[in-house]
Amino acid sequence: MKLNGVEIADGFAEAFGMRATRLVITADTMEWARRAAESLTGFATSVIGCGCEAGIERALEPKDTPDGRPGIAVLVFAASSADLAKQVPLRVGQSVLTCPGTAVYSGLDADETVEVGARLRYFGDGFQIAKRLDGARYWRIPVMDGEFLCADRAGMVRAVGGGNFLILGTTREATRRAAERAVKAMRVLPNVILPFPGGVVRSGSKIGSKYKALIASTNDAYCPTLRADANSALPANVESVLEIVIDGLTESDIAAAMRAGIAAACAPDSGLVRIDAGNYGGKLGKFRFHLREVMG
């Protein structure tokens, strides 16, 4: 299978079951909402080292937010509900509670929930006030610029993390430009985030290492400088490989994002050789995204 001359490998991306929530952060201006959201989703690239994976999903017009102010929707993914329950109050407490004029709402209606204000209310030291409106509970926590308004809980759903594809290019520049096109096309889609900086990863990893302390190490089969090694997976003319990792609320959200990203990457005369995907032989993840099915 080829797309504008770029080979779509007969491989699959392996993804995992995760727990996710959507938070809506509003503020007096879009700039302040974005600052809070960027801080909340900062250092949240991989559950391995960050406890969760988070990103900005989209900006919201005042008419689309609960309080009629500009807002940002963020998605937070964690490996378990316990991890999510730990990360969400921690991040909201450090990054939104602290940020002038902001408020936090649940962005998902779901039977299961994760605590937000229910934990942060204690910051109010007894001066906090609970209010119930239209079935939802909110906390008003006195802070130095007035009150921090925070949803008691946010909806939590089962989600999918670790969808991915690899961009194999003839030069570093061509590969980077293709990744940038892919990210641009994917970031407009709902229900997905690309947790890595700029949406792109250059340090794809394999499971295990020659060093016993490491559970993962560099994916040497895709490192172009190691192409002479017997187990290299790279064709001779590949000089650079970049990966795009996708977390989404559902399998179909991830498939849609992969489709849009791969199509954008494989523009005419892109300088790409192949689109591949990362997996662990299908042994670890619950979900598989076969590239040729996704692009079919």
Binding site: D67, G68, A103, K131, Y138, R140, G146, E147, L149
Partner: peptide, 11 residues
């Protein structure tokens, strides 16, 4: 004061 909660209440 400006209380955000009152916006939600009014809505």
């Amino acid at each position: 004061h400006e209380l955000l909660y009152l916006r939600l209440l009014a809505r």
